[in-house]
Computed example of a mutant assay.
Amino acid sequence: MASRFHESFTRDALRSYFAEFISTFFYVLIVIASGMSSRKLMPDASVNPTSLVVGAIANAFALSSVLYIAWDISGGHVNPAVTFAMAVGGHISVPTALFYWIAQLIASVMACFFLRLFLVGMHVPTYSIAEEMTGFGASILEGILTFVLVYTIYAARDTRRGGQQLSSTLVIGLISGASVLAAGPFSGGSINPACAFGSASIAGTFRNQAVYWVGPLIGATVAGLLYDNVLFPSQSLDSIRGVSEVNVRV
C-alpha cells in the first residue's frame, strides 16, 4: 500500500495528473461553449434539433482530440467514470484515481468559470432531465450510455486487438457524439460526471446532480469488469498489480 501511494507522487504520476487537467479543461471548455454558442445563435436552442447536432459534433471532435494528446501520458481518461472503472479493475491504484478525479473536477470548474468570466451576459448551461423523465430513469439512461462508452474505451485500448492510437481515439469520440444524439433531449447526454459537476458549480445549482454520478459510475464499472473478466479475460497477470500485462495500458 505504501509503495502504491509513493507511486502516486512520482514524476510520471504528476505528468499524468497535469495531462488529465489539460485534457479535461479543453474538453469541457469546448462542450459547454458549443451549448452557449447554440443559445447565442438560436434563442430557441432548447427545442431546435440543430443545437443537438452541434453539441454532438463538438463532443465527438473534442473528445477525440483531447484523448489523442493525453493517450500516452495519463491514458486519456478525461472522465471520472472511466477513472473509477480503471481503479475498480486494478489498472490504476486508488490514490492515483483520487488525484485523477481532483484534476478532472478542478479542470472542469475552471473551464466553466473561464466561460462565465469572459462570455459576459451568457449563462453557463447545465445538464437537466426532461419533464417526462424521472431521476431514476435518467440515471439508468446515463449509466447505459456510459457503459457503452467505457466498453468502447477498453476495446480501443486493448493491444490484443491491434488498435491504433488515431483510429482508437476517433472511435471513442464517435460513440460519445452518438450518445449525445441519443440522450440529449432526455437526460442531457452528459456521460461525464466532471462535465456535469463543473457547469453545475458555476451555475450555482446542483439539482439532479446525482443522476450524472450514480448511473455513469455503475455503468462504467460494469463495463470494465465485463470486458476484463468475461468477454476478453486477461491471459497473463502482473505479479504485483494482478492485472494483464498486455491488457489496457494506463
Rank of each mutant, 00 (worst) to 15 (best):
T10D: 01
A220P: 04
W213F: 14
M1Y: 06
L67Q: 13
I92F: 00
A2C: 06
N48K: 10
L166T: 13
L217T: 11
S37F: 07
F84L: 12
S236T: 15
T205H: 06
V31I: 10
A196K: 04
R116Q: 10
A87D: 00
S168Y: 01
S34K: 15
V120P: 00
S93N: 06
N229E: 02
F84N: 03
S244T: 08
R39G: 15
W101S: 03
R116F: 04
A97I: 00
I191M: 05
I106R: 10
A220C: 05
A13C: 08
L174N: 09
F26R: 12
P80D: 09
S139M: 11
A58Y: 12
R207K: 13
K40E: 08
V148C: 10
M1L: 09
S23Y: 00
H123Q: 11
V88P: 00
A182M: 11
I240L: 02
V214M: 01
F25E: 05
S244L: 03
S38Y: 04
T169K: 07
S176T: 12
F118E: 04
I191K: 01
L115S: 09
L105H: 02
L14E: 06
T10Y: 01
G143N: 08
G219E: 03
T152N: 08
Y154R: 06
Q209R: 03
L67W: 12
V109S: 07
G135K: 09
A103E: 01
S3M: 08
L105G: 06
I30E: 02
C112M: 07
H123E: 12
V47M: 08
P80G: 10
H91F: 04
D72P: 01
P80A: 14
L231F: 15
S234H: 10
L119R: 05
S108T: 08
Y27F: 15
A156K: 10
S16L: 02
T24M: 02
A220N: 08
I218H: 14
F18H: 04
G224F: 02
G137F: 09
R160H: 14
A45R: 08
Q235D: 14
A2I: 08
T205Q: 11
F136R: 09
R207V: 13
V150A: 06
N79E: 00
D228G: 13
T221R: 05
A2F: 05
S8Q: 13
S38F: 00
L226F: 15
Y17L: 06
S179L: 02
A62T: 04
A182I: 11
M1E: 08
G198E: 12
R4Q: 13
G242D: 01
A194C: 11
S176Y: 14
I22V: 15
M42R: 13
L141N: 07
I129Y: 05
K40N: 06
E142A: 03
V109C: 13
R116G: 06
F114A: 15
L41D: 12
S93A: 13
T152V: 09
S168C: 07
S51E: 04
A97H: 05
F61N: 03
T221S: 07
A62Y: 01
Y27A: 00
